[in-house]
Nucleic acid binder design. Structure first.
Lengths: 200, 200
DNA sequence: ACCGTATCTGCATCGAGTGCATTTTTGCAA
DNA sequence: TTGCAAAAATGCACTCGATGCAGATACGGT
């Protein structure tokens, strides 16, 4: 049962995100002040920080959603699965769960991660947190077989390879004729590279 | 011949770093303002930003030194080397070259990376830049054999593995009570564990 | 000693973020 | 409906990081 309070709060929250995305696109991130966003959502400036701890955090609302998908894949381990199997399945599930990232928020986020240092810093921070959490669950899924440091290395290699490949993809001025298909192939290649030494 | 101007500038630069490190240790990063640092170095607050673009940047003065070691290892490629060979050697050299990790600056930096989000963000950013640069040189060292995306994945996997292992090591202060004393030993151990699957 | 230039400095200003006290809104019971 | 406590919103003052600008100062070469 969602109370009126919760509904209203969620509505303002979404209004803030929508207003911010629109302003970021039109005037750029740096030229948009928190006061602008709040005004566009018809909210006092001070109240903004009751919804988001900082200007960057507005861009990462459902930060733990993808982590959940990965954790779920790990916890559904079958006895014959290797850690690498779980990571591959987790990545696949994450790709499904994030619905191809078609929201306008996701679009502007991708662009800002590449251009605004503060936003990129926040994104990297979240990625690091996700790595730690996934590594912890991986250790729990393989008791006695996988120690923390090795799990950290494995997850780091995996996520590092994927994001390294993605970064190289984005650096290239690619014509997006069939870029999506190529990207998928590249990602598969990247995971293969990262996991090859770990397969036994 | 270094002019008096350059010498003076270098002296104040070092004075700023020293003063900052001392203040960070005694009062903490957040409780130390830029004005405090400038005052301790007998410099106007405004002048601080002529030396460092931001408060965090003071902590990373020689940011590209370790990258140079890696690049050097890559450029000394022998014909029979594979990309993985070069990265293994590069990371090994980096581990050796970080012998100056004993400076007070490095000590306080390690601590602040773990505790202050802004500092960690900056460190991650520098690591990402290093990855991109190394990947670029790797592509140049294997013309026609290695594309950008694959190189990005490979470098990401290596560096991700090492830093993931290092992070896992640092997260656990309980185990190996003596290991926490020396950051360099941690780096060595993390590298060994992270890269073991790649060795043949 | 002189002058052009690099550097330093004070000052005004902006924007992010916080603490606090006050007001408004909501949930719930009488 | 009214009364009341909790939650949320708001205004205000303030700190701090960072930038732009103009004037003062120090340096290097002549």
């Amino acid at each position: 049962m969602t109370s009126l309070r919760e509904r209203k709060k969620e509505r303002t929250r979404q209004a803030l995100i929508d207003a911010a995305v629109e302003l970021f696109q039109r005037r750029g991130y740096d030229k948009t002040t928190v006061a602008d966003i709040a005004a566009a959502a018809d909210i006092a400036t001070r109240t903004f920080f009751g919804y988001f701890a900082s200007k960057e955090e507005l861009l990462f609302p459902e930060s733990d959603e993808r982590v959940r998908a990965a954790v779920k894949a790990i916890e559904e381990r079958k006895p014959e699965d290797t850690p690498a199997d779980l990571l591959l399945r987790a990545l696949h599930d994450v790709g499904e769960a994030s619905g191809e990232m078609v929201s306008p928020l996701a679009a502007v986020r991708v662009q800002l991660i590449q251009t605004v240092p503060a936003v990129r810093g926040r994104a990297l921070q979240l990625q690091l947190d996700a790595q730690r959490e996934i590594a912890g669950h991986l250790v729990a899924a393989f008791p006695g077989e996988l120690d923390r440091v090795t799990a950290g290395a494995l997850v780091g290699a995996f996520i590092g390879a994927v994001s390294g490949a993605l970064q190289a993809l984005m650096d290239n001025p690619t014509t997006n004729a069939n870029a999506n298909a190529n990207a998928r192939a590249d990602l598969r290649e990247a995971t293969a590279i990262a996991l090859r030494p770990w397969r036994r």
